[in-house]
Deep mutational scan, measured.
Amino acid sequence: MQIFVKTLTGKTITLEVEPSDTIENVKAKIQDKEGIPPDQQRLIFAGKQLEDGRTLSDYNIQKESTSHLVLR
């Protein structure tokens, strides 16, 4: 499924993911596309910070959901 990640600069990154993917996996995909190390990434969805060990389905992130990327 596709999800979108919006950066603070207003850029939207499109990612191909599975509901069973962990947040860690998603951060690795963002690193592949954008070159941002996962330890600098914070992903926010529905006002919550997403934890590495959880999956997209844990957070009820469905296709075409948009989460926000904040850099630390």
Score class of each variant (00 low, 15 high):
Lys6Cys: 13
Gly53Glu: 09
Ile36Arg: 02
Val70Ala: 06
Arg42Gly: 05
Asp58Thr: 04
Pro37Cys: 07
Ile36Pro: 03
Glu51Lys: 08
Asp58His: 10
Gln31Thr: 09
Met1Thr: 04
Lys27Gln: 02
Ala46His: 14
Thr66Cys: 11
Ile13Asp: 00
Gln41Ile: 11
Gln2Glu: 09
Lys29Val: 04
Glu64Lys: 08
Met1Leu: 08
Ala46Cys: 12
Ile3Ser: 00
Ser20Gln: 10
Glu64Gln: 10
Gln62Gly: 15
His68Ala: 08
Ile36Thr: 07
Val70Leu: 14
Lys33Glu: 07
Ile23Pro: 01
Thr14Phe: 08
Pro19Phe: 06
Thr9Pro: 04
Lys11Tyr: 12
Ala28Thr: 10
Pro19Asp: 06
Leu8Arg: 11
Leu71Gln: 06
Thr12Gln: 07
Ile44Arg: 05
Phe45Met: 06
Leu71His: 06
Leu71Ile: 12
Ala28Asp: 06
Ile3Arg: 01
Gly53Tyr: 10
Asp52Val: 05
Thr9Val: 08
Gln62Arg: 11
Gln2Val: 15
Val5Gly: 01
Lys6Ala: 07
Val26Leu: 10
Met1Glu: 02
Thr55Asp: 02
Val5Met: 03
Arg54Ile: 04
Val26Ser: 00
Ile61His: 02
Asp32Ser: 12
Ile30Thr: 01
Ser67His: 12
Asn60Gly: 15
Lys33Ala: 12
Gln62Leu: 12
Gly35Leu: 04
Glu64Arg: 07
Ser57His: 09
Thr22Gly: 03
Asp52Ile: 05
Thr12Cys: 13
Asn60Ile: 04
Asp21Thr: 10
Asp39Val: 09
Lys63Cys: 07
Lys63Val: 09
Ser20Lys: 08
Val17Asn: 00
Gln2Ile: 15
Thr66Asn: 10
Arg54His: 11
Lys11Pro: 04
Leu71Met: 08
Arg72Phe: 15
Gly35Pro: 02
Gly47Ser: 04
Ser57Val: 07
Gly53His: 14
Lys63Trp: 11
Ile30Glu: 01
Gly10Tyr: 04
Gln31Phe: 15
Glu18Pro: 03
Arg42Phe: 13
Asn60Leu: 05
Lys11His: 11
Ile3Thr: 01
Thr66Lys: 10
Lys11Asp: 07
Asn60Thr: 04
Glu18Asp: 12
Arg42Asn: 11
Ser65Phe: 10
Glu18Ala: 13
Ser67Leu: 15
Gln62Glu: 11
Pro19His: 06
Arg42Leu: 14
Thr14Leu: 10
Lys29Thr: 03
Val26Pro: 00
Glu24Lys: 12
Met1Ile: 11
Thr55Cys: 07
Gln31Lys: 10
Lys6Val: 14
Ala28Gln: 13
Leu69Asn: 02
Val17Lys: 00
Glu64Ile: 13
Asp21Pro: 00
Ser65Trp: 08
Arg42Pro: 01
Glu51Pro: 03
Gly47Phe: 04
Asn25Glu: 12
Thr9Ala: 12
Gly35His: 06
Leu69His: 02
Lys27Ile: 03
Leu71Lys: 05
Ser67Ile: 15
Val5Tyr: 03
Gln41Met: 13
Val5Trp: 02
Lys63Ile: 08
Lys33Thr: 08
Thr22Cys: 04
Glu18Phe: 14
Glu64Asn: 15
Glu34Pro: 01
Asn60Trp: 04
Ile23Ala: 02
Ile44Trp: 15
Leu50Ala: 03
Ser65Asp: 09
Thr14Val: 14
Leu8Gln: 13
Ile36Ala: 03
Thr14Pro: 06
Ile23Gly: 01
Val17Ala: 05
Leu15Ala: 01
Tyr59Pro: 01
Ala46Met: 15
Met1Tyr: 14
Asp52Asn: 11
Gly10Trp: 05
Gln40Leu: 10
Val17Arg: 00
Lys33Gly: 04
Ile36Lys: 02
Gly10Leu: 03
Gln49Arg: 10
Ala28Met: 14
Lys63Arg: 12
Thr14Gln: 09
Asn25Leu: 13
Val17Phe: 03
Gly10Phe: 04
Leu71Arg: 06
Ile30Phe: 02
Val5Glu: 00
Ser57Pro: 02
Leu56Arg: 00
Thr14Cys: 12
Lys6Pro: 01
Glu64Pro: 06
Thr66Arg: 09
Asn60Pro: 03
Leu43Gly: 00
Glu51Cys: 11
Thr22Arg: 07
Thr9Leu: 10
Glu64Val: 07
Leu15Phe: 04
Ile23Thr: 04
Asn25Cys: 12
Lys27Asn: 01
Pro19Leu: 09
Val5Leu: 05
Gln62Met: 12
Pro19Glu: 08
Ser65Lys: 07
Glu24Pro: 02
Gly10Pro: 02
Thr55Leu: 08
Arg72Ala: 13
Lys48Ser: 08
Ile44Gln: 06
Gln49Asp: 14
Ile13Met: 05
Asp39His: 13
Leu8Asn: 11
Pro19Cys: 06
Thr66Ile: 13
Ile3Phe: 05
Val26Gln: 00
Ile61Glu: 01
Glu18Ile: 12
Phe4Gly: 03
Lys33Gln: 12
Ser57Gln: 13
Asp39Trp: 13
Gly35Ile: 02
Tyr59Glu: 03
Phe45Trp: 09
Val17Ser: 02
Phe45Ser: 04
Pro38Met: 15
Leu8Ile: 13
Thr12Asn: 05
Lys48Phe: 09
Arg54Ser: 07
Gly53Val: 07
Ala46Gly: 11
Pro19Met: 08
Leu50Cys: 05
Met1Cys: 05
Thr7Lys: 04
Pro19Arg: 06
Gly47Tyr: 04
Pro19Thr: 07
Leu15Tyr: 02
Tyr59Trp: 02
Thr55Gly: 02
Gln62Asn: 14
Asp32Phe: 11
Gly35Met: 04
Ser65Ala: 09
Lys27Arg: 05
Glu24Gln: 12
Glu51Leu: 10
Gly53Gln: 11
Glu51Val: 09
Lys33Arg: 10
Leu56Gln: 00
Ala46Ser: 09
Glu18Leu: 15
Thr12His: 07
Val17Met: 04
Glu24Cys: 08
Leu71Ala: 06
Glu18Ser: 14
Ala46Asn: 15
Ile44Tyr: 15
Gly53Trp: 14
Asp32Thr: 11
Glu64Phe: 14
Asp52Cys: 06
Leu15Val: 07
Val17Tyr: 03
Lys63His: 15
Ile44Lys: 04
Val17Asp: 00
Gly47Glu: 04
Lys33Met: 12
Leu69Ile: 13
Pro38Asn: 06
Val5Asp: 01
Lys63Phe: 10
Ile23Tyr: 01
Lys48Val: 14
Gly35Asp: 05
Leu56Phe: 03
Thr9Ile: 07
Gln41Asp: 01
Lys27Asp: 00
Ser67Phe: 15
Pro38Thr: 14
Thr7Val: 09
Phe4Ser: 06
Gly53Asn: 12
Asn25Ala: 14
Ser20Phe: 11
Lys48Leu: 11
Leu43Arg: 00
Met1Asn: 03
Lys48Met: 13
Ile3Val: 05
Thr55Glu: 03
Gln2His: 12
Leu15Thr: 01
Phe45Tyr: 13
Val70Phe: 13
Asp58Gly: 03
Leu15Glu: 00
Tyr59Asn: 02
Thr7Phe: 15
Lys11Met: 09
Leu15Gln: 00
Lys6Trp: 09
Thr9Asp: 12
Asp32Lys: 13
Val17Gln: 01
Asn25Met: 15
Pro38His: 10
Asp21Phe: 07
Ile36Cys: 04
Lys6His: 15
Asp32Arg: 13
Gln41Tyr: 13
Asp58Asn: 04
Tyr59Arg: 01
Glu16Val: 12
Arg72Ser: 12
Glu64Asp: 14
Asn60Glu: 07
Asn60Ser: 08
Leu71Tyr: 06
Arg42Ser: 10
Glu34Trp: 15
Gln49Cys: 14
Asp52Thr: 06
Ser20Tyr: 11
Lys6Asp: 07
Glu18Gly: 07
Glu34Lys: 04
Lys48Arg: 11
Gly10Asp: 04
Leu15His: 00
Gln62His: 14
Lys29Ser: 03
Ile44Met: 13
Phe4Ile: 10
Asn25Gln: 14
Val17Cys: 09
Arg54Gln: 08
Ile13Ala: 01
Val70Asp: 07
